[in-house]
């Protein structure tokens, strides 16, 4: 378990990083927190010729609120999501999700940008930023472009990011008053990759959802913003309505099987998550237990 030989360059600026990526194309890999990249290299699943280490770039760090927008630098570490007052205030969902990412040692190194660019379908943050209606800011030598989170994830480890581009920041609307959040995942052990997970944001008026975004993860090849949410919006949620939404959800899902869970189990758990989410957000425990029978 020793990585194959590789060259290493410590980028001095984003411009410098982009130059290096332009010069080496897909033979280069960006090193951010290294929590997925380094194990893959040690197992020789990946053997890049060059690592472009962006870890020292101050311009990629920091969390700020600009106008009504929360801007989170790509190098923001998971532990920073847990500790940031701005995140707690404007995107508490990210803080809740970060607590489920692996273990402290990994949270101390792993970064938001790295997690999004890696695009592991079982990871928490891609689903969260999809739910939060975020925009991903990427930079190329030719300039900057913005990609909606919902358009960013293309498949297992696949994103809209081009080899010459660098993910520099994530922007999202700062939380409006009245939003409620839900986050839950099922993993064999705390810190393991989820078998199934759900991140949700809701606006609730008078006991009804006026807006509901349900971001499922680990149940498909990318985070799924479930259309089933529309079945629950602007209606009085009854067990029948919820069962109907769950049926819609199952049709939307195309989960893979692995050693922890079969596709059928993932479908089942996604429905359990849906029921528990709705019951929790509406503070209606009857919906959870009622639907379970």
């Amino acid at each position: 378990m020793k990585a194959a030989a590789f060259a290493y360059a410590r980028a001095t600026s984003v411009v410098n990083a982009l130059e290096l990526l332009a010069a080496h194309g897909d033979k280069a890999k960006v090193l951010s927190g290294g929590q997925s990249l380094m194990p893959a290299m040690n197992l020789r699943l990946l053997s890049p010729d060059l690592l472009v280490d962006i870890g020292g770039l101050a311009e990629l760090q920091g969390v700020a609120v600009k106008g009504g927008t929360l801007v989170i630098g790509a190098l923001t570490r998971h532990v920073d999501l847990l500790r940031s007052a701005e995140v707690a205030l404007h995107a508490p969902l990210l803080r809740e999700a970060a607590a489920h990412i692996a273990h402290p040692a990994i949270r101390n190194r792993g970064t938001l940008g790295g997690s999004l660019a890696h695009a592991d379908p079982a990871s928490e943050l891609p689903a969260c930023i999809a739910v939060l209606d975020a925009t991903i800011v990427v930079r190329a030598p030719s300039g900057e472009r913005r990609i909606a989170a919902t358009e960013f994830f293309k498949g297992i480890y696949e994103t809209a990011l081009l080899p010459q581009e660098l993910l520099v920041a994530v922007e999202m609307p700062a939380r409006g008053k009245g939003s409620a959040f839900f986050f839950q995942e099922y993993a064999r052990r705390h810190g393991d990759y989820a078998i199934a997970g759900l991140a949700a944001r809701a606006t609730i008026d008078d006991g009804r959802f006026s807006d509901l975004r349900l971001g499922f993860f680990a149940v498909g090849d990318r985070p799924l913003l479930a259309a089933a949410a529309s079945k629950l919006t602007n209606v009085s949620v009854t067990p029948t309505v919820l069962a109907d939404a769950a049926a819609t959800l199952v049709d939307e899902l195309d989960p893979q099987g692995d050693q922890q869970a079969s596709p059928a189990m993932r479908r089942h758990l996604a429905q359990v998550l849906l029921r528990r989410c709705v019951a929790a957000l509406l503070a209606r425990p009857d919906l959870e237990t009622g639907a379970a029978q």
Binding site: R188, I195, Q260, S262, M265, R267, H268
Partner: peptide
């Protein structure tokens, strides 16, 4: 006794 084993035995999946 994995969750898969339990759910299968319970006939949930």
């Amino acid at each position: 006794l994995t969750p898969q084993v339990i759910l299968t035995a319970l006939g949930r999946i």
